[in-house]
Simulated scan of single mutants.
Amino acid sequence: NAADYIAIVQAERAAGRRILVMPTLETMMIAACDTRPSVLCKLHEMLAPVQDCVLNIRVGGNDFSNLYGLRRPATATIYDVGIVRDILMDILNVFAVDYVVSGPVWNYFGAAGDAAWEEGLRRELALDRLHGFIGKTAIHPCQLPLIAASLRVPREDYDDACRLAQFDAGALGVEKSAGGHRMNEAACHSRWAERTLALAAVYGICGEGRA
């Protein structure tokens, strides 16, 4: 039904009203390995004319799991469910260059300080960031502080991103990081730096409040 929604977005824009949409990818057409590549590429092509109205792309981790009768426990992340992980990686491969793609729902919640669900969510959030997801749908208010905290930028990352944003590639191709133990290279890390600075502007720097 993507065409129907896109038509509405275009009609609203033609009338001078901009509405934001969050397409959710969670059906068997996307999950099945024989249709997934063509469907994802077709959706990317269809969304291009309204890209400025796409707030983010959402993925249905639970919906994909349900297609195969699976459900991850609090001791496992979505990345431990191989068949679902592969689907998510293909979605990121197609959409993450041009869109924000948010991570799948974490099923567990409870009282603050309950180690089981909090530790599981923290692990999955760290893997979300590592793989390129930004943000996560919360199913309970107690999840929000952990999700927001995961989007805050470590000080070393922020300092390196600032250096990369002002990097003179002609003078020096590679330099040491702010912490002195990893390399910064504009040709390899410029998009990472752009994303890092954007996250810092919204969510702040770890231990320092808002940027």
Results as ranks from 00 to 15, higher is better:
Ala126His: 13
Leu92Arg: 09
Phe133Asp: 04
Leu151Gln: 10
Ala148Gln: 07
Arg123Leu: 13
Thr137Lys: 10
His131Tyr: 02
Gln143Lys: 03
Val101Trp: 00
Ala111His: 05
Gln143Trp: 03
Glu118Met: 06
Thr137Asn: 13
Gly113Thr: 05
Cys142Asn: 13
Leu92Ile: 10
His131Val: 00
Phe133Tyr: 11
Ala148Ile: 04
Ala116Gly: 03
Ser150Leu: 07
Ala111Ile: 07
Glu124Tyr: 01
Tyr99Pro: 07
Phe109Gln: 05
Arg122Asn: 15
Leu146Trp: 12
Ile134Lys: 11
Gly103Ile: 01
Ala96His: 09
Val105Met: 14
Glu119Ser: 14
Phe109Met: 10
Leu121Cys: 04
Trp106Gly: 03
Tyr99Gly: 04
Asn93Ser: 11
Gly113Ser: 04
Arg129His: 06
Glu124Thr: 01
Ile139Ser: 11
Asp128Thr: 03
Gly103Val: 01
His131Met: 02
Glu119Cys: 11
Leu144Asn: 02
Gly120Asn: 09
Val101Leu: 01
Ala149Pro: 08
Phe95Ser: 08
Asn93Ile: 00
Gly132Ser: 05
Pro145Met: 10
Ile139Gln: 08
Arg122Ser: 12
Asn107Ser: 10
Ser102Val: 05
Pro141Val: 14
Asn107Val: 00
Phe95Pro: 03
Val105Glu: 13
Thr137Ser: 14
Asp98Met: 08
Trp117Cys: 09
Pro141Ser: 10
Ile134Tyr: 08
Glu119Trp: 12
Asp128His: 15
Arg122Ala: 12
Trp106Ala: 13
Pro141Ile: 12
Pro104Phe: 00
Leu151Glu: 07
Leu125Val: 02
Leu144Cys: 06
Ile147Glu: 00
Pro145Ile: 03
Thr137Asp: 14
Gly132Glu: 07
Gly110Val: 14
Asp98Phe: 09
Ser102Ile: 06
Pro145Cys: 10
Arg122Phe: 01
Arg122Val: 08
Ala148Arg: 01
Asn93Gly: 04
Ile147Gln: 01
Ala149Ser: 12
Leu127Phe: 02
Val97Leu: 06
Glu118His: 02
Asp98Glu: 13
Gly110His: 09
Gly132Ile: 13
